[in-house]
Amino acid sequence: MLIFIGLGLFDERDISIKGLETVKSADRVFLEAYTSRLMGAGTAKLEEYYGKEITVLYRENVENNPEEILLAAESGTAAFLTAGDPMVSTTHSDLRIRAEERGIKTGIIHGASIQSAVCGLSGLQNYRFGKSCSVPYPEKGWFPLTPAETIMSNMKQGLHTLVYLDIKPDRFMTVNEGIEIITEMCKRREEEPPELFVGIARAGSENPAVRAGKGSDLISYDFGGPLQILIVPAELHMMEEEYLKVFAGL
């Protein structure tokens, strides 16, 4: 059996009781470590808390060569761990389909997701979010503009945009960098950049940072350590505006 288990937002304690019990009883435990991270707990800390040896997986292991996972699920119970919720944003639908096609029973134990956490931290209403997007680090000869297109399309429809910030093995994009890149994208599209942004850092921790304001102000604000995420709001409802004033310094 292959069971997808969401670990929640920040550290080893965010896993549900059901998830923890399943991990402890599993024959093999895998941790997907390329779409997101638990910044409050490394692999060693997870192993100590769960009492299990963990095999860390990267994109190549999951998307291109998942045989080790599938073989473990065929011969016993394999737990596949992800930060957040395993089927929200960092979706692993392809792996679940492959397992089912091989006759392997699958299951999901959900975890807290950044998609719901940002609503609680920012006060922006969840049903007012449109299509999300990801902002990658630009590379030589490559500067995609699609994220700006998504943001502008959402704003025209009165919808907020959740912007996922790039994660590299050696660095994590900050809110400040995200605002800079989005602003440059808009300039290249010959459009005015968004006026208002909401930056969030370390959701799920005891000291999350939440700050709303103009891009020109937030670009120099110190959000502290990772992980960070960005929201580009559309026109605010009066309750959303009041919430941001009280809890995010708007």
Rank of each mutant, 00 (worst) to 15 (best):
A79W: 15
E32P: 15
R102G: 05
K105S: 11
Y164Q: 03
G130V: 13
M155W: 11
G107T: 01
I181C: 03
E190K: 12
Y127I: 13
T146W: 05
D170N: 05
Y137T: 15
I182T: 02
G213H: 06
I200F: 06
N64S: 14
T106R: 14
P147G: 03
T22S: 12
D170I: 00
L162N: 01
E47W: 11
A148I: 08
K45T: 15
E63A: 10
R171G: 01
M155Y: 12
I219F: 14
G249W: 06
E100A: 10
S93D: 14
L20D: 03
G204Q: 06
G8I: 03
T22F: 13
H110S: 15
I229F: 09
E32C: 14
G199S: 04
P226I: 08
G107S: 09
S93A: 15
D222M: 12
S16Y: 04
G178P: 06
L196Y: 08
G42H: 03
P136L: 15
P136G: 13
E47D: 05
L95D: 14
H92P: 07
M239V: 12
L124Q: 08
L165C: 05
L218N: 10
Y137G: 09
I200A: 02
M185C: 06
I3P: 06
S89G: 11
G204S: 13
A33Y: 09
G178Y: 01
Y243M: 02
S134R: 09
Q125D: 11
R188N: 13
R28G: 11
H110P: 14
P66W: 07
E191N: 05
R211Q: 12
R13S: 11
R202E: 15
A99M: 04
A234V: 01
G225Y: 14
K105L: 04
F172N: 04
E195M: 00
A212M: 08
G199T: 07
E241D: 15
L31T: 09
L121Q: 12
E190F: 02
H160S: 11
S216Y: 11
S134N: 07
Y50I: 09
R171I: 02
V198T: 05
L124A: 12
G51E: 10
G84D: 14
P194Q: 03
G40A: 03
E240I: 03
V175G: 02
T91W: 09
T77F: 11
L31Q: 07
M173K: 00
L20M: 09
R188S: 04
R171E: 10
M185L: 04
G42Q: 10
V232M: 00
V23R: 07
R128C: 03
T91R: 08
G103F: 06
K140H: 11
K45S: 13
E206C: 07
A234W: 00
Y243N: 02
G141T: 10
P144W: 08
L230F: 14
S216W: 10
E195Q: 11
E67H: 09
I229G: 02
V29P: 14
A72P: 13
G40Y: 03
A201G: 14
I151D: 03
A212W: 00
M239A: 12
L162W: 05
E177V: 01
M185V: 05
E190Q: 12
Y49P: 04
C186Y: 10
E180T: 06
T150A: 04
V210W: 10
A248M: 05
L124C: 09
